[in-house]
């Protein structure tokens, strides 16, 4: 994952609003960072793949990915 995408993922986790879907939170941070939609899809795909593989929810997967890459 590119550093700017990782940063946006981290912001999505930290700035999560009540009732936010991961898609909503990540999309908001990607737009704020000026990243393109393709980057969003790739990052979201990584989160979903991790989520399915480890049977977690998407927020826990995002946190785990961020931790792994620290």
């Amino acid at each position: 994952m590119r550093p700017e995408c990782r940063q946006a993922l981290s912001a999505a986790v930290h700035n999560r609003r009540r009732d936010d879907d991961m898609e909503q939170a990540l999309g908001r941070e990607f737009r704020k960072a000026g990243l393109i939609y393709h980057d969003y899809l790739e990052t979201m795909d990584e989160v979903r793949t991790h989520m399915r593989k480890n049977k977690m929810d998407c927020w826990d997967s995002a946190k785990a990915i961020l931790k792994e890459k620290e």
């Binding site: 879907d21 898609e23 909503q24 999309g27 908001r28 737009r31 393109i36 939609y37 393709h38 969003y40 899809l41």
Partner: peptide, 14 residues
């Protein structure tokens, strides 16, 4: 070619 779909993602999210 998701880029050609403009702001559809933003509409869905917001």
């Amino acid at each position: 070619e998701a880029g050609r779909m403009g702001n559809n993602g933003e509409y869905i999210d917001k």
